[in-house]
Every structure is written in structure tokens, then in C-alpha cells.
Nucleic acid binder design. Sequence first.
DNA 1: AAGTGGTCTAGACCACCCT
DNA 2: GGGTGGTCTAGACCACTTG
Lengths: 283, 283
Amino acid sequence: MWRARQSANASRPACSNWQQVLRPDARFRDQEGICTMMDSAETALAATGDLSLHQQIVNDVEAKILAGDWPPGHRVPFEMELAEQYKCSRMTVNKAMSQLARAGLIIRRKKSGSFVSLPQVQSAVLKINEIRSEIESLGKIYHYDLLERSLRRANANDRAHLDMKDGKVLHLRSLHQAGDRPFCLEERIINVAEVPQSLEESFATTAPGGWLLQQVPWSTAEHTIQAINADSETAKRLAIAEGTACLVIERRTSSNAAHITHVRLTYPGNAHILVARFTPSQS
Amino acid sequence: MWRARQSANASRPACSNWQQVLRPDARFRDQEGICTMMDSAETALAATGDLSLHQQIVNDVEAKILAGDWPPGHRVPFEMELAEQYKCSRMTVNKAMSQLARAGLIIRRKKSGSFVSLPQVQSAVLKINEIRSEIESLGKIYHYDLLERSLRRANANDRAHLDMKDGKVLHLRSLHQAGDRPFCLEERIINVAEVPQSLEESFATTAPGGWLLQQVPWSTAEHTIQAINADSETAKRLAIAEGTACLVIERRTSSNAAHITHVRLTYPGNAHILVARFTPSQS
DNA sequence: AAGTGGTCTAGACCACCCT
DNA sequence: GGGTGGTCTAGACCACTTG
């Protein structure tokens, strides 16, 4: 029933009178009792290590849910109950429960309590690395080639991609190579009105992706992923047979409600694989 | 310099003596002064609405970073400073800053302070819906067909996928259709040792995906995404030409360190597009 | 009407880290 | 050393929801 309270800080002794340390002017009526209980109680959460208390609560509850002990729909103990179990304040429990709610593991309803939520959509975190670091992490030498650079008035396609009315776009086509092999074909348009300094950059040796990240401090991005058959031009550039299946990632980057750039990355065939991982705990 | 403190709750009057309300036994020496300042101060954050205070702080800081006012590497004001600005306790500021740190917008270092982080990897949240709901959300009628169901001893491939030593797997091949058109080809193996009740399910009319989600309450999943050319068998099943580029999503689902199932979903050509969205604020 | 989660406070102690 | 973030508390008020 009662659980040994793990110390929040690594160096805090297991049976130190932490209440006294924390609140020198507090009443100590419970101090001895606590120490006695700690001495006698089995540390049920022995392997929890030196995590913060609210993180331990998160882990414990999460473990219960993952193991199926608490099936979907099950009511998680109230904050007050957990606070009593863990011998901590409601604030600490609340922090843990809020984290679990944000992660989507539980759903919280006032008056009713918190409930284990049903898994609905498989939500996965997809990490799309910078191409350069991705290649270098493979132990290959990164090489970048600019194929085409042109400034033009936005055509219908550009306007649709960048959701703009009129204006100029900088069109860039480039090839990323790993060692001496083509790795990824990049086709990009940049909204010149939003990034005027792009006109002064030749992009002959600087890949536009990393450059833009430095110019536009933070951004929102929308991605689409699809499979296409390589046309003759793509096949030539990527040194693959025409018709080979390619993975195409399109990304539209926005900042402050204005669309900055649109990029289409074409990876040759099944050579490239995206990896995504989903764990309920993260976030 | 000084900012008007937005009330945490919508109904709290702008100039109410909330300190008094919150702490009836507190000293009120500042009460009048606060009200006077509130009356005279411009509400710089007028449009913040009825959000919680820590969420307002999150929004404000995020806006500054997104707009580029605080470029990467810039030091965010210390917790104490922000607490003074917003006329709130450090706890509240801490809550906001912790949230921003979890979202990856800032990096916190003791003694030094918090700094706007450089965007590194494009981390996107990929939502992989249940196939049924995905089809139905398209306004199409969902239809499921079981093509093959067999129980077998795990071969080398199975063992690699499920990271198991020996044992039996249930092998299922099925087709998901939208209206009268093939939508997705599913090939799945289930670790019988982990889900013995799968033997009693025919899967003739029940799609294994949703069924498993109910049996195994929560799970960790690893995904890989790649593009392949359809072989003759796949092409026939999906009613597409041989060699058509297909999007293949493979998912390995685990629970409690044991691998439950491995599924390979093949979507015809560029008909299917995955959409992922990345915003720094979420989480 | 009662109970739950949501939020906030003022203060405290600690580990860590930079100077 | 001193300052920063990390954590925790005991108590408070409020909105919301359900019985």
C-alpha cells in the first residue's frame, strides 16, 4: 500500500530527515515516523534511480498502463490519493499527471478523475536530419552540387506551393552526394519577398537548407511523403534506372504565417529509409 | 518595462485585489499600489485572452523566438526577471520555461541561463491513422478481405522482425479497400507466444490492427518508410501496373520489451500521401 | 452541492556550473 | 562563491462537471 518515497535528489540520504532540511521551521511531528517507515519498508521502486519525484510518478503510472495493469478506461487514482501514496504534495502529482496527459496516455476530466486513454492514431515522431549530417553520420563524404539557379516570377505552381499572390521566387536545383554516389535530389523555391538576402547568396557551395535555417530563426513545417517512379531526368541525376521507385519528401516551411520556402527532396529507390519511433513516454 | 499582469482566470477582474483573494491572511501593503499601476499601465499583452499565466509566458517567449527578435543563442531573461515582469512567482515562470525546453525551443544551463536553441533536426510528428478511419474519413466505404491466414514456426525472417529465438507466428495477409478499389495491402506476423488469443480469432471479418490494439493496451512502435517498385504479386493485388512505385510502411509493435507484431503496409503508388506537421509549440 | 483538476504563491533546499 | 535552474511544499482559490 504505502510506498517508500524515493529521494528527489541523488545525494539525499535515503532516510535523511528531508522535511527538516526543507522546512527548518516546520513541525517535526512526523519525522521519526517517516524514518521508521522508510527503514522497514521495502523499496518497491528500487530501480527508479535518482530521478525527480514527479518523473518517478510518471514512470510508475506509465509502466502500469504499458503493462496492461491499468487497461484503457481505467481510472487512475486521484491526485490526492497519489500524493498520499508517494508522500508528496498534490503539486508534484499534478506535474506528473499533466505530463502524462500531454503525452496522451491519460485523459483528465474534472470531477470524474483521470482515465487511461484508448490508443487511437499511431502518432510517430519522424526525425528528418539535415542531409549533410545524415550523410556524414553514415561515414561518407558529403558533396554538394548546384545544378540550377534562377530567379523568376512566381508561376501558378509556385503560388500554390507558397500560398502567395504574386512576386518573385528563387528556384534552386541541387544534388547531394554521399561519397561519389548521388544521395538526394533537391528542388527548392524560396519566397524572395520573405528572404531578400537570398538574392545575394550564390548557393554554389552552400546548401540552401542549412543556410535558410540560419536566416529564418524558427519555423513551422508541413511535410508530405510519397513514392514516385523516377522520370528520365531524375533517373539520370540519381544514376538509377528510369522508373525506379523513389521516396519523395516535400516540405513547406513557414514563419510568422508567411511561407518561406518549399523543397522537394527525392531519394533514390529503396536506398533511403525513413525511421520513425513512437513511445508514449516522450514529449 | 513593467507589464500588466493578466489575470489567470477569465472571470478575475483586471484590477481585482487577487492577492487578497488568494491569501486572505497576507499583508496588503502592495495592494493599492498594484491597482494603481494596473490602471495606468498599458496592457501590452491585450490579445492574450483567458489563457493560464504560464501559457501566456510560453506564447510570449515563443512569439519572440519565432519572430526572430530573439535569435538562436540569445539569452532568455532569467526566471527571476520574468517573474518580476509578469508579477508572478518563479514557479509559474519555471513551468513555462520547462515547457519551452521540452519543446526544444530553448536550452537551459545552470548558472548561465536559458538560451534560444538552434534548430537542428527537423522533427515532425507523423500521424498514422487506423486504416479504417482513414478510409472512412475520405468518404469511402471500408472493406476488409483476408487473403491468407497461416500458423507456422518462425523462420529466419520472422525471428529477425520480432527479435525472437523460436516459437510460432501467425501469418496474415489482407487487403483493405476503399469503395471497390484496393487501398492497402497488409502483411503481418503476430508473435503467438505474446498474444495466444490470436489463435482463436479467425480475422475473417476483423482487421488485425484494431483487434491487436485492444488486446495489447499500449505499445511502443518503430516505423520505417520506404519506396519500392511493385512486384507482380503486389501489383495484381493492388490493381496497379507492375513496377509502380509503392509506399511501404513497416511497423514493429512492442510491449513490455517483447515484440508483439510486425506489419508491412503497402500503399499503391503516389495515391497515398503521408502528411506530417512540425510546430515548435506543440507538446 | 460536492469533489476534482487547474492554477498560482512564497519560500525553501539542492546540484551544478561558471568565474 | 555566488547565481541559476530543478525541485518540492502547504495552502489557497477557481472553474467545471457530475450526482
